[in-house]
């Protein structure tokens, strides 16, 4: 909080009554943004916007400046991020609602699935999990532990079996059980591995044999401490699976996750969830203003 207020007061002092923001302030702003992993391109974009606004609306006070900064940065987040959502919802007209979770290794896919299952289950929705990570050591056991914790059924096969076949079975079983939500876990994979990305496309396609428009949501999980590589992740996973939603994990640490601003801006994919711990309740619905504010906190 201390560094937040000192940043804003410094910014205000240098900007108040001027029609141009001086270089020192912009340098400070640049440091805050780049250090939050916002990236050089997006940072320059934000700085341009601030300069424009300051040139237009002269004589700014702290509150206004604070507001402009938040607005301009939040404005880059995909428009579908209203910033006001607080609910874990699924559309009522899609039953079962199928969610496929993808991402590079170790970002928090399986954990996020456990937390989401808990949230949906708590709302009275019937959830079925599909263990389509058949590759990583003990990945199925890990999802099983989460399924037991939440108290929801899981569909699985042996390690090393075809992930597409697990996804298919899960959808069949979900339909038969009259499930509301089906969540498919997939193995972590680096986006530059062509064959593994093809496999993911196949997993997705196979689901359509059971439910035409499945998966209804492809959730890309990004580790909040990832730097600029997250851009390439978003790009390649979108190419392979048409990602519709982002989740950013591990924001309970010191990493800021700023790279999602540029990603959301460029790919128009909304950030929906943030992970803030390893516990079952440590998932929150993304709030863009709180997110932006966190850059200015120590």
């Amino acid at each position: 909080e201390k560094s937040k207020s000192s940043f804003f007061s410094k910014l205000t002092k240098a900007v108040a009554g001027k029609s141009k923001v001086d270089d020192e302030v912009l340098d400070n702003l640049e440091e805050v943004l780049v250090s939050s992993d916002v990236g050089v391109d997006t940072t320059l974009k934000i700085i341009d916007r601030i300069e424009e606004r300051v040139a237009k609306d002269k004589y700014l006070g702290t509150d206004e400046l604070n507001k402009i900064l938040r607005e301009e940065i939040a404005g880059l987040l995909s428009e579908t991020n209203s910033g006001e959502e607080t609910e874990y919802t699924v559309p009522a007209n899609k039953k079962p609602y199928v969610l496929m979770v993808v991402g590079v290794n170790g970002v928090g896919k399986t954990t996020t699935i456990g937390k989401l299952a808990y949230q949906f289950n708590k709302k009275g929705l019937k959830v079925v999990l599909g263990a389509a990570d058949t590759f990583r050591a003990a990945a199925i056991d890990q999802l099983q532990v989460w399924a037991d914790r939440v108290g929801v059924p899981i569909v699985k096969q042996n390690m090393g079996s075809d992930p597409a076949s697990v996804a298919y079975d899960t959808l069949k079983s979900g339909v038969a059980q009259d499930a509301d939500v089906i969540i498919i876990d997939t193995a972590g994979r680096l986006h530059n591995k062509v064959n593994l990305m093809k496999e993911l496309t196949k997993v997705k396609k196979v689901m359509q044999k059971v439910i035409d428009d499945a998966p209804h949501d492809v959730l890309l999980v990004l580790d909040g401490s990832t730097g600029q590589n997250a851009f390439e992740q978003a790009k390649q996973f979108t190419a392979a699976t048409e990602v519709t939603t982002l989740a950013v994990t591990k924001l309970d640490g010191t990493a800021k996750g700023g790279v999602v601003i540029g990603i959301s801006d460029q790919f128009q994919i909304p950030v929906k969830y943030i992970g803030v711990g390893e516990g079952i309740e440590d998932l929150q619905v993304f709030n863009k203003y709180e997110f932006v504010d966190s850059f200015f906190k120590k």
């Binding site: 780049v34 250090s35 939050s36 992993d37 590079v104 170790g106 580790d223 401490s225 990832t226 730097g227 600029q228 590589n229 997250a230 640490g253 010191t254 990493a255 800021k256 790279v259």
Partner: peptide, 12 residues
């Protein structure tokens, strides 16, 4: 440490 880590690497 994950080689994809961004600016936070120094803090950690």
């Amino acid at each position: 440490v994950d080689s994809m880590t961004g600016q936070d690497a120094v803090n950690t």
